[in-house]
Design a protein around this nucleic acid. Structure first.
Length: 291
DNA sequence: CTTGGTTCCTGCGTGC
DNA sequence: TGCACGCAGGAACCAA
């Protein structure tokens, strides 16, 4: 499931290949996930690519933007003359011929390039809107501070400093894991990185946030940073069907600490990772390290 | 303020 | 081999 590192990985790719491209035409094959008027972006050129938490925004040179949230299974894949050969893996969910049955929007670019939007579960959305209104989108407007200051983040956007993190934890009695994943509290952290950060910090996912000691608060803050940076370094985690802007898989799934590792050895102590349900979400933890 | 349930959707694992 | 069934999950929304 794409989180901050995965979406940032996509953003980096889109930035590399899309800036300067002109959108010549748009095929919307699944109208329900596409909001706004295609006419507003025809003939416009991509100026910059921003990310707000797990949301992506393509800003165009006509003061319109394409805002998108890929949710669980969305993919933005670029194919063009200046990109490497597209991957053609055996798994038809990743790579292979495009468009495919999950391709819902096709952006035809100049020089014969194409941007495909695929989404198996159709939870994601794309919205065309004036650039100045992007930050009024509820998801972006109400997004909490982001752990990592990355290029092209919202200008003036709050950064999650250690001090701010501590303040948040001290006033919240919510269980720490769902708190980490609450986009209105902290921007960009989802299930994978919440699980891994909590194991790295040796904190039980069900602990009330305000029960953490000062030392634990610092440790968790560092752990969140560490796992997010690690995720980015490995090009994201391909858990379901995440791919980058060229259709390539990530490799962070080879480095999961807790997430998805039920009955496998804890990387810290060797005992078995257990899976429980917490606030409706699959939760992986080490009963020995995270008491 | 907070938590919990439901909804969207489809691929996949399970059991027979 | 094939079919029915139920589950997972980001975030909006509603209810208590």
């Amino acid at each position: 499931m794409p989180e901050l590192p995965e979406v940032e990985t996509i953003r980096l790719g889109l930035e590399k290949y899309l800036i300067g491209c002109t959108i010549e035409g748009i095929d919307v094959r699944l109208p329900k996930i596409f909001h706004g008027n295609t006419k507003d972006i025809e003939c416009a050129k991509v100026k910059q690519v921003r990310r707000f938490g797990k949301a992506l925004v393509l800003d165009l040179d006509n003061d319109f933007s394409i805002a998108a949230h890929i949710k669980l299974t969305g993919q933005f894949i670029y194919q063009g003359p200046n990109s490497p050969n597209p991957p053609n893996t055996p798994n038809n969910l990743i790579g292979g011929e495009l468009p495919n049955k999950w391709t819902h929007v096709i952006f035809h670019l100049d020089k014969g390039a194409t941007l495909f939007y695929n989404d198996i579960r159709q939870f994601g959305w794309i919205r065309i809107m004036p650039t100045r209104e992007v930050e009024n989108l509820p998801f972006i407007n109400e997004l909490g501070p982001e752990p990592i200051r990355l290029a092209n983040a919202r200008s003036g956007q709050a950064v999650l400093t250690l001090g701010l993190f501590k303040k948040i934890l001290q006033v919240k009695k919510t269980k720490i894991k769902p708190l980490l994943m609450d986009q209105k509290i902290i921007g960009g952290v989802g299930n994978i990185y919440a699980n891994d950060a909590l194991l790295l910090a040796k904190i039980n996912p069900a602990r009330p946030a305000n029960s953490l000691s000062l030392a634990e608060q610092s440790k968790l803050y560092k752990a969140v940073m560490t796992v997010l940076k690690r995720g980015l370094k490995y090009g994201g985690a391909t858990e379901i069907n995440f791919v980058n802007a060229l259709g390539e898989s990530g490799r962070y799934q080879e480095h999961f600490l807790a997430y998805g590792r039920e009955n496998q050895p804890c990387p810290l102590c060797g005992s078995e990772i257990k899976k429980i349900r917490l606030a409706g979400r699959g939760t992986y933890f080490c009963p020995i390290c995270q008491k």
